[in-house]
Amino acid sequence: MENGIMRKICLLVLAVAVASCRHGGQFCVEGHITDAADTVLYLEHLSLGDGIEVVDSVRLGADGAFALRGDTMSTPEFYRLRIGGQCVNLAIDSTETVRVEASLRDMSFGYRVEGSGACDTIRLLCLKLADLERAVRRVADDRDYTVEERDRMIDDLVRQYKTEVKTDIIQNRYDAAASYYACFQALGGRLLFDPMADRSDLTWVRAVANAWSEKYPGSQRAQNLYNIVMEGQRLQARPREIVIDTSHSKVRELGIIDMTFPDIHGTERTLSDLKGKVVLLDFTALGLDGAPERTLQLRELYDRYHSRGFEIYQVCVDPDRHFWTQRSERLPWTCVYCEEGLGSDILTLYNVQSLPTYFLIDRNCDLKSRQEDPKTLGASIGKLL
């Protein structure tokens, strides 16, 4: 009798907790973890800046029922349920309720999830990675093969895994939480998709970064991916030979290091062709955090001074050319694309340490000053005009 009453009380408490989870601005993770009586279940946020943060926790009863909640973020975020070393990875992007059913004996890989397609896709990714780890371990332990043969077989297994993830997960929705998650899966402590070392991986991570920047502009995770891609592009940039004419007559004629890059129409645009105008040389990337605001500031300067002989030569090093084309097609000034990105020799020659970086060039094509803030450009431009 007493057991029946206690069970009803526990169910009532759980029902009240679940109801409170469904209030606006919060998400709820509920369900059962069996064979886990008297253990503590944690809901943890896998944040970018602050590491792993505990969001909520509960000591499980005999039936393993739980209802944990957290504040919904404005963009998809990643969480995990954890008991000891057993984890269930989750992605939350709304005030949704996600239901997880598992046994502590095989919690990490034997769980079921309902209420979230993103969480279920992440479950499949985790299972797929576990299969890969087992296959790699079997090959590594098989001494019937030489070291070279084992390495080749493992490379083939990894390549097959990445191909399946690309076609089955990432290609279906570049902007999905599961696609972002796939970019950070690791085997033996090494990223499977390594944009720093593999040009093909860089292409796929760049596609995800571009999609996240479009769907969640300015978000921390979109910016994180974008920064990774920018660094990967810098490390993988193909060296390009630049011949600089340092003869006395050339230096006397041009007080700048000249450059030529294509605009969105493919037309080669040379900086020195703007001689006779006051030019703002802008090294930037249109996908940077705050870029739309800076573009508005430049537009105000352009509208104010263009009729008096002011021009902008904007060099963009965005990792994705299509993204750059979309963002630059309506700009009224000279906007060109530097395919070498952050690894370009031009950025080195101009000692560009951060983006954006501005230089002012006078009508004689002499470099006059280096600027950091577009808000202070107006007075300097007015003096040169």
Results as ranks from 00 to 15, higher is better:
130 A>P: 03
130 A>I: 07
130 A>W: 08
131 D>S: 12
131 D>M: 11
131 D>N: 07
132 L>F: 05
132 L>P: 00
132 L>W: 02
133 E>W: 12
133 E>F: 10
134 R>Y: 10
134 R>E: 14
134 R>S: 13
134 R>M: 12
134 R>W: 14
134 R>A: 13
135 A>Q: 15
135 A>M: 13
135 A>W: 04
135 A>F: 04
135 A>S: 15
135 A>D: 15
136 V>K: 11
137 R>L: 15
137 R>W: 12
137 R>S: 13
137 R>V: 10
137 R>N: 12
138 R>G: 12
138 R>F: 08
138 R>K: 14
138 R>M: 11
139 V>R: 03
139 V>W: 01
139 V>I: 07
139 V>N: 03
140 A>G: 03
140 A>W: 07
140 A>E: 05
140 A>Q: 09
140 A>K: 08
141 D>K: 05
141 D>R: 09
141 D>F: 04
141 D>I: 02
141 D>Y: 05
142 D>R: 01
142 D>F: 02
142 D>Y: 02
143 R>Q: 07
143 R>K: 11
143 R>F: 10
144 D>V: 07
144 D>C: 11
144 D>N: 15
144 D>H: 13
144 D>W: 06
145 Y>M: 11
145 Y>P: 06
145 Y>K: 07
145 Y>L: 07
145 Y>S: 05
146 T>A: 07
146 T>C: 05
146 T>L: 05
147 V>M: 08
147 V>R: 06
147 V>H: 04
148 E>R: 07
148 E>C: 04
148 E>G: 01
148 E>P: 05
148 E>T: 04
149 E>V: 04
149 E>T: 02
149 E>D: 03
150 R>L: 00
150 R>A: 01
150 R>P: 02
150 R>Y: 02
151 D>C: 05
151 D>S: 06
151 D>N: 05
151 D>H: 06
151 D>Y: 00
152 R>D: 11
152 R>A: 13
153 M>Y: 10
153 M>N: 11
153 M>C: 13
153 M>E: 12
154 I>A: 12
154 I>D: 09
154 I>V: 15
154 I>T: 08
155 D>N: 15
155 D>W: 02
155 D>S: 15
156 D>S: 15
156 D>V: 09
156 D>I: 14
157 L>H: 06
157 L>F: 02
158 V>R: 01
158 V>Q: 04
158 V>A: 02
158 V>G: 01
158 V>N: 00
158 V>F: 00
159 R>F: 06
160 Q>I: 03
160 Q>N: 08
160 Q>E: 10
161 Y>Q: 06
161 Y>F: 15
161 Y>C: 11
162 K>H: 00
162 K>C: 01
162 K>Y: 00
162 K>S: 00
163 T>E: 13
163 T>K: 15
163 T>C: 15
163 T>H: 15
165 V>S: 01
166 K>I: 10
166 K>C: 11
166 K>S: 08
166 K>G: 08
167 T>G: 03
167 T>I: 09
167 T>L: 10
167 T>A: 07
168 D>V: 08
168 D>L: 09
168 D>R: 12
168 D>W: 10
168 D>S: 10
168 D>N: 10
169 I>F: 00
169 I>A: 00
169 I>E: 01
169 I>H: 00
169 I>G: 00
170 I>D: 02
170 I>M: 05
